[in-house]
Design a protein around this nucleic acid. Structure first.
Length: 565
RNA sequence: CGGGGCGUAGCGCAGCCUGGUUAGCGCGCCUGCCUUGGGAGCAGGAGGUCACCAGUUCGAAUCUGGUCGCCCCGACCA
């Protein structure tokens, strides 16, 4: 995009959209707006500048932490630049909605969001300032919520279909907010920041943060009382799993690590196989906590009396949960809870309790699918949308209530739905490009057609003007490349900026009564008669649009069919 | 916030180690000629606080210290 002259970097995570790039962004906005309106949502616009009191009221001032951009303005008012608008919209609704008769309602806006990202990266994928469409639904009961949620889900599918993006919908982690359901829309691509776990045989797909691991019943090894007791070995200065395993000559899969977390201010321990990765969301659920974070070494030392690197589950003093994979091991190498000591041959269930068994780790390639138990696979994905059932978190915290038929007060039930507009653009480029440049989908392209007159002669200019007029009269935005440059330069530029349809008007072709038409996606061009060329180009475009529309329609139908089935 | 790299013309870079003419090169830009169906050629030209601040030195793009900015890896990312 930089190369094509569409954006320009101002600083870390801040980009200017030049005219060509802005047109693409606006096309994405237009599609989103059309589909939101069609889904029955109402547009409004809330301020980006918000009083921090609102954030304290919802309890998210702390939860959002450094991501929230804070500033002080005249008169010593503390303000924040909104990273999202649950607080503001809830404030709006608590003041306006009184009765169940006003529900359900879905409101949305398209607006610039601010997040103080620790590390902006991947060009426009992760920036400190970005355009977001955020929608919020307000319902009186779960039935209504499901209807609102499904309407947004379906609208999102239509939006991405129209943008020509090959998306997948995955189950997502809903975070400490809770709620029963959350889906992310992902575009598979190498620059994606998220890892999607999916099952090729049954279609299960989830964010790695969320993905469950199928539990295959194996014979749990007998905690044989007859087996030898564990032995204590000196492991001077061997603190990491790799060091210890190398030192003892055992594979990492035969070891286990004890990780200490702070769950709602209390230190807790989790035992995970040495080569596995802990999943904080799963841990949080296992401990039934609302917040969880890795404990720092000082806290660990204080809570366990053991320095980091030698922690083990045997006779540990803080609450312990154990990953399921541990229970399938007959013996395990663990920390000895003393400096420079590890234990070999420790038997789970005999030497430490495995009563608190949970799925605690990140799913990996080859893990069993939670539905059909086939091996799952992993790929990278770029998150372009997220739909979310919020429940009553904000309405309860901020007192957004309505009166039901019986006259009793209830908190409204909320949902929220976000689309990163810039990411639609980024995803379109990631999935549509070749060595010559970008290949825009028809609906996003900055211009649908470019006219390339090769010479400045009268006849060529006249024909170009004629075609331009026909297309413009039909409401089509046309880019005419009337620069005085060599043909090769114009062709290369047209390819680079990815205009879907290129029309070449040249003296050579006109002599034979031809002009040339070429789709960016196709290898070869074709000649059409110069007479009535404008109408022919128009027909060509309309045909392509009709094809897209019918493809979208058939996708909508197949989604509807699969929902019934 | 940790680790690494880089700041020299609009863009991409060389020069720095070993201080010393007028700081170069490619692309782009401007003028003219020529050329015109896949990034032509020739000739001429414009364009620089060498990121910033301080220090060492007769002399600093070059050496030293600090500051700022950007990029990459990691931690983080309801």
């Amino acid at each position: 995009m930089l190369r094509a002259g569409m954006i320009r970097q101002l600083g870390a995570g801040a980009y200017t959209y030049l005219p060509l790039g802005l047109k693409v962004l606006q096309n994405a906005v237009r599609i989103v707006r059309e589909e939101m309106d069609a889904a029955g949502a109402n547009e409004l616009l809330m301020p980006a500048l918000q009083p921090v009191e609102l954030w304290k009221e919802s309890g998210r001032f702390e939860a959002y932490g450094d991501m929230l951009m804070k500033l002080t303005i005249s008169g010593n008012h503390h303000m924040a630049l909104g990273p999202t608008h649950e607080e503001v919209i809830t404030d709006v609704v608590r003041n306006l909605v009184r009765s169940y008769k006003q529900l359900p309602i879905t409101l949305y806006q398209i607006q610039t969001k601010f997040r103080d990202e620790a590390r902006p990266r991947f060009g426009i994928v992760r920036t400190r300032e970005f355009l977001m469409k955020d929608a919020y639904s307000f319902d009186a009961n779960l039935e209504q919520l499901n209807a609102s949620y499904n309407a947004m889900y379906e609208a999102y599918c239509r939006i991405y279909d129209r943008c020509g993006l090959p998306y997948v919908v995955v189950e997502a982690e809903s975070g400490p907010i809770g709620g029963d359901s959350s889906h992310e829309f992902m575009v598979p691509c190498s620059t994606g920041e998220d890892r999607v776990i999916f099952c090729p045989s049954c279609g299960y797909a989830a964010n790695q943060e969320r993905a469950e691991i199928g539990h295959i019943k194996k014979e749990t090894p007998e905690p044989a009382a007859s087996a030898a007791a564990y032995e204590s070995v000196e492991t001077p200065n061997k603190r990491t799993i790799r060091d210890v395993c190398e030192f003892l000559g055992v594979p990492e899969t035969a070891s286990a690590k004890l990780l200490v977390f702070v769950a709602d201010d209390k230190p807790v321990a989790a035992l995970i196989r040495g080569d596995h990765e802990a999943n904080e969301a799963k841990l949080r659920r296992a401990f039934k906590a609302t917040t969880i974070a890795p404990a720092d070494p000082a806290i660990i030392q204080k809570a366990t009396g053991v320095p980091v690197g030698f922690l083990g589950p045997v006779a540990i003093k803080i609450p312990l949960v154990v990953d399921r994979a541990i229970a399938e091991m007959s013996t395990v190498v663990v920390g000895g809870n003393a400096v420079d000591v590890h234990f070999k041959g420790v038997v789970p269930g005999r030497d430490f309790p495995i009563t608190n068994l949970h799925d605690l780790r990140n799913a990996e390639v080859g893990d069993a699918c939670p539905r059909c138990h086939s091996n799952m696979e992993v790929k990278s994905g770029l998150e372009i949308g997220h739909v979310f059932k919020l429940g009553t978190k904000y309405s309860k915290a901020m007192g957004a209530n309505y009166l039901d038929e019986k006259g009793t007060e209830n908190p409204v039930i909320m949902g929220c739905y976000g689309i990163g507009i810039n990411r639609i653009v980024a995803a379109a480029i990631e999935t549509g490009n070749d060595a010559n440049g970008i290949i825009w989908p028809l609906e996003l392209a900055p211009y649908q057609v470019t006219l390339v007159p090769l010479q400045a002669g009268d006849e060529v200019v006249r024909k170009t003007d004629e075609i331009e007029k026909v297309l413009t009269d039909a409401g089509i935005d046309v880019l005419v490349d009337d620069r005085d440059l060599r043909p090769g330069v114009k062709f290369k530029d047209a390819d680079l900026i990815g205009i879907p349809l290129r029309v070449v008007i040249g003296e050579r072709g006109l002599k034979d009564g031809n002009i040339e038409v070429k789709w960016r996606t196709e290898k070869d061009s074709k000649n059409i008669p110069a007479d009535g060329a404008g109408q022919a180009v128009l027909a060509e475009l309309q045909e392509a649009r009709a094809k897209l529309a019918s493809e979208c329609r058939s996708r909508i139908e197949s989604r509807a069919a699969s929902r019934k089935g």
